[in-house]
Computed example of a mutant assay.
Amino acid sequence: MKSILILCNGSPPSEQLFSKYRAKTAYFIAADGGANIALKLGTTPDVIIGDLDSYDGSNKESSEIIFRPSQELNDLEKALQQAQKEKGTHIYILGATGHRLDQTLKNLSVLKQFSPKFQRIRIADNFGEMRLLPPSFADDFAIGTQISLFPLSGKVTGITTQGLKYPLKNEFIKNGVRDGSSNEVIKNPVQITHKEGDLLMFVKHNND
């Protein structure tokens, strides 16, 4: 198992959040301007990768620099390709949300694209953590944790949940029609199954 942290150039994570995820990982990739955020956080990436249009050059003396000018890929895609080369298995992504909404939506699309390529891939920000769920999922959470379910693309069908305050029983959610936001953990383990579609789960950070 090899855990890798990727830091993008969106809304910066808090020092506490960054430290939490950095402690989980053995290797640190900055996606272009994410290197500037890393410098402000007082840390140095192992690798800085991208077209380098946002990177100010401050870390060039101590990080490997990989210039990837392709406009067919965004900087997160380039960072994830590098994570594959490094044989990463568990990927944690910070700074991929906030600022421009179009870039946040693009990064959620990238999450779908790369989810099959790693054992675990998660996007986190100062509010919570997102992941795409497999057809059958079970895990424990602190009682009272807020969990939201969204269809990443179109419609998700056959959703059944256990352990949540508002259960679903072989039901669907669909963009523009119905979602599963702001549910709450009341019992463990939380179990979520679905039959078809891309089901995105957002878990709100507990303040304690």
Rank of each mutant, 00 (worst) to 15 (best):
107 N>M: 08
117 K>Y: 11
94 L>N: 00
78 K>G: 04
99 H>L: 12
130 M>K: 04
54 S>K: 00
139 D>Y: 13
96 A>M: 00
89 T>I: 14
107 N>S: 05
97 T>C: 06
72 E>A: 09
150 F>C: 00
123 I>N: 02
61 E>Q: 00
151 P>N: 11
74 N>S: 00
84 Q>G: 01
144 G>W: 10
113 Q>Y: 12
93 I>P: 01
74 N>D: 10
129 E>L: 13
136 S>C: 00
94 L>M: 04
77 E>V: 09
112 K>E: 15
72 E>C: 10
128 G>A: 07
89 T>W: 12
58 S>F: 06
67 F>V: 00
148 S>Y: 04
68 R>H: 05
147 I>E: 10
92 Y>N: 02
68 R>T: 08
151 P>Q: 07
147 I>P: 12
96 A>D: 03
88 G>K: 09
62 S>V: 05
136 S>F: 09
151 P>Y: 07
97 T>S: 08
137 F>Y: 13
69 P>R: 04
103 Q>E: 11
131 R>Q: 15
123 I>M: 08
78 K>A: 00
64 E>V: 05
96 A>L: 11
111 L>I: 04
138 A>R: 10
140 D>Q: 08
139 D>W: 10
128 G>S: 13
102 D>I: 12
69 P>Y: 13
55 Y>M: 03
60 K>W: 06
122 R>C: 06
70 S>R: 12
134 P>F: 12
130 M>F: 11
109 S>W: 09
142 A>E: 15
93 I>D: 00
84 Q>P: 02
99 H>S: 15
85 K>E: 13
87 K>D: 14
79 A>W: 05
117 K>T: 14
146 Q>W: 08
100 R>V: 12
149 L>H: 02
131 R>D: 12
123 I>G: 02
75 D>N: 02
